[in-house]
Amino acid sequence: MAADWRSTMVKSIEMERDVREMKNYYIIDAYTKLAERAVAAETNSVRSTTGAGTNSRELARIRVELESLYNNQTTSKSTIQNLEAEAEKLKLYNARIDAEFEKLQLDKKKLESQLNTRDEEYRERNKSIQILQDEILTYQIQLNVAEDKVNKLEKENRELVNRWMERVSREAEKLNDANAFLESIDRNRQRNREANREESQREVTASAASPADHKK
């Protein structure tokens, strides 16, 4: 991401610089041509003074050309001024871009450091997650063991309760039987008592009815 941004920046700066240099090149070129022409004109005038005489027509042409060169120079000057102003503006813009670039570099550094911190945090977090996962696994194993134990104990408890219930049931049956037995004994005793009483009464009645027999 950062590399993309930098290449974009460099590319745009180079393009702007090329444009600026191309503009300066045009001015430099014009000046060079002007100087060449000035040198040629000077040489021609020396040749005409030292030569066979001045050609007025040539002079007039040179004057017109000079005029035109002056005009050109004026235009070039104003173009140069414009370009210089433009260059100044571009310089300012460049400075601003540089400053911004600096700022962005700083931001980038800051972000990179944040990223590092974040990475570190992630690593720590991952470690913690790993520890937690291990703990969860341990607890899961413990839970499974405990569940097995609970199931085993529940089964054992169920069996014990069933055994106890069977035992209580047997005890209840025994008590019922014992009660019935005691009751029957009690009843038999009572009947025997009543029978004995009846018999003794009969004996008393019989002895009272035949006292002669007794005397015998």
């Binding site: 309760v161 049931s169 209840a172 008590l175 019922n176 009660n179």
Partner: peptide, 22 residues
Amino acid sequence: MQLWDTAGQERFQSLGVAFYRG
């Protein structure tokens, strides 16, 4: 007096007739 005390909890109630007889 023979006191027969029952379980109130449903899961411990399966004695049936033997318990109540007589």
